Simulated scan of single mutants.
Amino acid sequence: MKRFEDKVAIVTGSSNGIGRATAILFAQEGAKITITGRNSQRLEEAKQEIQKSGVPEAHVNVVVGDITSNSVQEELIQSTVDKFARIDILVNNAGGAILDKMGNLGVNQSLDNFDETLNLNMKSVIVMTQKAVPHLEKTKGDIVNVSSIASGPRSVPDFNNYSLSKAALDQYTRNSAINLIEKGIRVNSVNPGVVVTGASEALGLPKEISEKYLNVLRNSKHCVPARFVAKAEQIAQAIAFLADRNMSSYIIGHQLVIDGGTTLVTGMNATNFAELMN
C-alpha cells in the first residue's frame, strides 16, 4: 500500500518548482491531489507529469488563480471537498520574493512591496489554514508550510521584506502547531536553502545569469558546504516525510532546514586562516 493511499492533499503554488515536485510525489504515493497556480499552461504541464506516473485523471483537481485571492482560496477548499470528499494534507508552498517596483533593496524597499510580500507569503497561509482546519480536524490531518533559511537568525540584507515574511511564517508555524495539535492537526515547516526552481528567472534574471549564480554557490564551500544545489524533488521528499504520520508522528512545530550546510557557516569558519597568517 502506498503511504498516501486514500489521502487527499492540497499543494499551493504547484505549477512549478517545489510545489510541482511535491504534488507529483504525493500523487505517485497514492494521494488524490489539488494543484493550483496562476499560470494555466504550467499547471497543465504539472497535471500531465502527474498522469505520466500512472495516476488517473480523476485523482487530480486543478484550480487556476492567485493564492492571495479570497475567491481562489474558497475554490481550493470547496472544489477539493466536492471532488474528493475530504482534506488530509495542506502544503502551503505558494510564495516567493517580489521585486520592489522601484528596484529598491534592503531597508529602502517600499511599504507597498512589504504589503504585497506579506500578503503572498504570510496572509495567504493564515487564510488557507483557517479554511482547511474544519476539514483537517475530521481527518486528523497535517499541514506543512514552505519557509526558507532567509527567515533567520542570520541577515538577508537585500531582500528585507522577503526575509521578514518568512520569519513571520516560522513563528506562525510554531504558534499554530500548539493551537492545532489539540484538534489532532500537526503543523511543521521545511526551510530550504538554495534550490533549482526557476525562481531567479521569474524575478527577471536571464537564464545564463541564473546558471552562473548557481555555479558560484555550488562551487563555494562557504556558500553551500555540500557543494551541490538541491533539486525541487529533494525538498518534496522532506515535505512528504513531515506529512507522513507513520514517519514523523512526534514532530510538531518543527522547522526542518534543508540547505546543504549553508546556515552552519559563519564568517570565521569560512575563512582560511592559514592563508591569512602567511
Rank of each mutant, 00 (worst) to 15 (best):
L203Q: 02
E201L: 02
A238E: 02
M247S: 15
A238H: 01
A240G: 07
M247E: 15
R227S: 13
V216I: 14
D244T: 07
Q237M: 06
R245Q: 12
N191Y: 02
A199C: 00
M247C: 11
V229W: 07
Q234Y: 12
Q237H: 10
R245C: 03
A199R: 02
R245H: 10
S210M: 08
M247N: 13
A236F: 02
V229H: 09
Q237K: 15
A199V: 08
V216A: 06
V196M: 12
L217C: 06
V216F: 09
P225N: 04
V190Q: 07
V196R: 15
N246P: 00
N246I: 01
E208R: 08
L214H: 14
Q234T: 02
A232S: 15
A243K: 03
Y213L: 14
V216G: 01
E208V: 11
S220N: 14
R227V: 00
G193R: 03
G198K: 06
E208N: 13
A232P: 10
T197W: 07
F241H: 04
N219G: 15
S220P: 01
Q234P: 04
F228S: 12
A199Q: 12
E233Y: 01
I239L: 06
V190N: 09
V229K: 07
R245S: 14
K231H: 12
N215G: 15
S210L: 02
G204Q: 10
